[in-house]
């Protein structure tokens, strides 16, 4: 058969004819919903900014470092809440971080596959328990334990440091920190584990070949995973800062700034939970919304930073 150039060539295409109309319609329809998701974040930010403008205008930055919270006189400063949120979250991190790293090492370096799977699943289940259940458990189990055992124990042996002192109620910063620690363990653990698992085996083999022990090998893996674990920690911190019910039920809800971990305190999310539905004046409501806006902003910054870090680490080894 001879191949000859085609006899006929027809005019070049018009744009609309080489597409399927149904496909175009469908694509644009799904696009609309994607835009809805996209705009939700902006709508939320805008509405909260608008809702808190009264408070922002009246108090400015003073809102962050004064401690008067007087709905009757209309004077609001959120410092005790900010302080409570930050300190309880830090306590949670101090408890959760070493444990999470330990479990991540266990899951990625030590456990055989048949054990890694169910343990990972159980850690994930911890994240699925509703926060109200953590609160309930914290209130009826953890708080008495802190009151009767942990509190007296640390006051007795570490009481000379002001940090480990305070009122013997059980409700307080320490109880909140412990509950929060349990709640943020899963997120820090699962991301650290993923980061450590993404490190190529050649790293481990190289270390073993030099005669390193398991632990020395693990240290090399850890130093590779450092920034990933940092990202995971930021995500955990974000979760702790926004947590509401569990904290509200165990922190004691007293707006004071105390150096003692055993003293009752208050948090930003808790004050929203307790006072929002009772806010009577515009200014009061506006001040509460401003606290919400702060939580929103801090959480977004932490999440974005964390995702950036985790993403840059995992993509380095992904290849």
């Amino acid at each position: 058969m001879k191949i000859e150039p085609p006899v006929l060539v027809f005019p070049s295409p018009s744009k609309s004819r080489n597409r399927n109309i149904g496909d175009l319609v469908f694509k644009n329809l799904t696009l609309v919903f994607a835009i809805v998701v996209l705009s939700l974040v902006f709508v939320m930010a805008y509405e909260m900014y608008k809702g808190s403008s009264l408070s922002i205008e009246k108090f400015g930055w003073r809102f962050l470092w004064t401690s008067v919270w007087d709905p009757v006189k209309g004077d609001f400063g959120a410092l005790p809440y900010v302080y409570g949120t930050i300190v309880s979250s830090l306590v949670a991190l101090v408890i959760a971080l070493p444990l999470s790293i330990g479990v991540s090492i266990f899951l990625s370096e030590l456990a055989p596959r048949w054990l890694e799977r169910p343990v990972s699943f159980m850690v994930e289940l911890l994240a699925a328990i509703p926060s109200i259940v953590y609160g309930l458990w914290g209130m009826f189990v953890l708080v008495p334990v802190v009151r009767k055992f942990i509190g007296p124990f640390i006051t007795r042996y570490l009481g000379f440091i002001p940090l480990f002192n305070g009122a013997p109620y059980g409700f307080g910063m320490l109880a909140a920190g412990i509950v929060l620690a349990i709640m943020i363990l899963p997120i820090i653990t699962s991301i650290s584990r993923d980061v450590m698992m993404s490190i190529p085996n050649t790293q481990r083999e190289a270390a073993f070949a030099l005669g390193a022990t398991k632990w020395e090998t693990t240290k090399i893996i850890l130093s590779n995973a450092k920034s990933g674990i940092a990202g995971a920690t930021l995500l955990g911190l974000g979760r702790a800062i926004g947590e509401t019910m569990a904290v509200t039920m165990v922190i004691g809800n007293m707006p004071q700034i105390s150096a003692h971990l055993l003293d009752p305190a208050y948090s930003m999310a808790s004050v929203l939970a307790n006072e929002f539905s009772e806010a009577t004046t515009q200014l009061y409501l506006s001040a509460l919304i401003e606290i919400g806006l702060l939580l929103f902003a801090v959480r977004i910054i932490l999440n974005a930073a964390a995702r950036l870090i985790v993403w840059s680490v995992t993509s380095k080894f992904a290849q």
């Binding site: 998701v37 926004g242 939580l295 959480r299």
Partner: peptide, 18 residues
């Protein structure tokens, strides 16, 4: 992702406003 990270109490605040 950002949306999934927003504290649920904040979502409550927004639903209150809206």
């Amino acid at each position: 992702d950002v949306l999934s990270g927003i504290p649920s109490i904040v979502v409550g605040v927004v639903a209150y406003i809206l």
